[in-house]
Design a protein around this nucleic acid. Structure first.
Length: 472
DNA sequence: GTTAGGG
DNA sequence: CCCTAAC
């Protein structure tokens, strides 16, 4: 099925001649058997790994041993010199002076990309390095610590002791490593600041740059060849690769995006081998490969794109919550809820994002059963009425928090948030018209009442989570 | 916890 | 490199 899917994918692509795609070159050339090698950017649906040795097997193993173009004629080049092999002499500076500044597009010319050992060199914008505060002082006193005077600065906030540590300009970056050749600095902890009084204070601090070496980039390309686009964690942890300490999958993703811009895949996609597939993984090579046509967009074949939630879908989510509460999988099954290929987990995450406070109350929420059926011929097993859940009174600050979040939605989206039934529950106490909302939510008249239930499920839900009284 | 995409 | 929503 997947094959035909891909066949259609390339139907609307003009023929290669009309596209004038640059000469196809092997990003991943071997000494002799180029045709036996799959595309480095070919998505890998399955990776064969020997469970015993934890090593790659089959063609992927061979891929991992691929040599760069100018590798010496030795079979174990990688094991002998795993790090230095791909180093190339620096481009003489005279070239940089003579050649006019290249346009950004030039960076991705196939001439450069095709030879993966020579990846696009970053624009050397002789940017006057913005000195970090206090850094010169640290150099002067040769202490990799803040100067004593730093202690004189008052804390920004009363509870900023930890912040001061994290915000130190010396954190994770001693002046000694100014060459930026060493390890990446340790990553800072994420700090979530929800207090409004500090909203304007910048509380995040940069990790600092860790330059990508050609070795690293080589390994990244190899990793994509082995695992596929998007398998950044796998690539990062591949035993044969040695990325700088502190690198994360995100870094790999960013780097790959820099080298192979997804909006211009024809700039970097390599040709597909023309020979017959040699072995066990025929099913993994894309149909495009069999046609001998260039792969249009390897990104398209990576993990599924993230689909944003439309307003309509949010409305479905709202309706679903009124019907099923926190039972996300039931929402998926309900044909009346028109979720478009959303899983229960996706629905849950969306709900958690939109209504975090309400989401965190699900422990005390009653478990609802299927709502009233339209065709009540399911009289075999009648669910007993749900036990009345323990009444919980929401704390006032919880409600304020939720109200704040609701307002944030307004600002963030630039449009009024859908005033959904969820708002009944979430923003109730904040509203002036409490009576209206109470009656509207608990004594709903638009319910398809199930005779087997003394109350509609939503009523229990609301009673459990909504304050019946306000003490402020 | 990871990844895609925007910044 | 960071942030955040989506996964």
């Amino acid at each position: 099925m997947a094959m035909h899917l891909f066949d259609d994918m390339f139907d609307d692509i003009p023929s290669r001649s009309s596209l004038r795609i640059p000469p196809l070159q092997d990003l991943f050339p071997g000494p002799s058997t180029t045709s036996a090698r799959p595309s480095p950017l070919e998505p890998i649906a399955r990776v064969n790994i020997d469970s015993e040795t934890n090593k790659l097997t089959g063609r992927r193993a061979a891929l991992a041993q691929a040599k760069p173009l100018d590798a010496p004629e030795t079979d174990d080049w990688e094991t002998l010199a795993p790090v230095k092999l791909t180093l190339r002499p620096e481009v003489p500076k005279i070239h940089q002076l003579q050649e006019p500044p290249r346009k950004k597009q030039k960076l991705y010319d196939h001439e450069q990309i095709a030879d993966f050992v020579q990846l696009p060199k970053p624009q050397t914008k002789a940017r006057a390095d913005k000195p970090r505060p206090f850094q010169p002082i640290a150099v002067l006193n040769e202490l990799h610590e803040p100067p004593p005077s730093a202690a004189l600065f008052p804390p920004i906030t009363p509870s900023a002791s930890q912040e001061k540590l994290d915000s130190s300009p010396f954190r994770g970056r001693s002046p000694k490593t100014s060459k930026n050749d060493g390890e990446a600095p340790t990553r800072r902890r994420k700090i979530k600041d929800r207090s409004t009084s500090l909203a304007t204070v910048k509380r995040t601090y940069n990790r600092g740059r860790t330059k990508w070496t050609e070795e690293e980039t080589d390994q990244l390309v190899k990793g994509v060849a082995i695992y596929g686009v998007g398998r950044w964690k796998n690539i990062l942890e591949h035993s044969e690769f040695h990325f700088k300490k502190g690198r994360t999958g995100m870094d790999l993703k960013d780097r790959f995006r820099v080298c192979f811009p997804p909006d211009a895949p024809h700039k970097w996609v390599r040709p597909i081998p023309v020979g017959p597939e040699s072995d066990d993984e025929k099913s993994e090579s894309s149909p495009a490969a069999k046609k001998g046509s260039p792969q249009k967009d390897a990104y398209m074949l990576s993990r599924s794109r993230k689909r944003h939630w439309s307003e309509k879908e949010d409305a479905e989510l709202d309706k679903g919550f009124r019907l099923y509460g926190y039972q996300w999988n039931l929402m998926v099954k309900d044909p009346d809820l028109k979720f478009d290929r959303r899983s229960g987990g996706q629905i849950r995450d969306r709900f958690r994002l939109r209504f975090p406070e309400l989401y965190n109350q699900q422990d005390s929420a009653p478990q609802q059963k299927k709502p009233p059926e339209k065709k009540p011929n399911q009289s075999k097993k009648q669910q007993p009425p749900q036990a009345k859940p323990a009444m919980t009174i929401r704390k006032s600050n919880d409600l304020k928090e939720q109200a704040k979040n609701d307002e944030g939605d307004i600002e963030g989206e630039g449009r009024a948030p859908p005033k959904t039934a969820l708002s009944f529950t979430t923003g109730l106490l904040n509203a002036e018209d409490e009576h209206y909302k109470l009656s509207n939510s608990i004594l709903r008249d638009d319910w398809d009442w199930d005779d087997n239930l003394t109350l509609a499920p939503v009523a229990w839900e609301d009673m459990a989570n909504k304050p019946m009284f306000q003490f402020d």
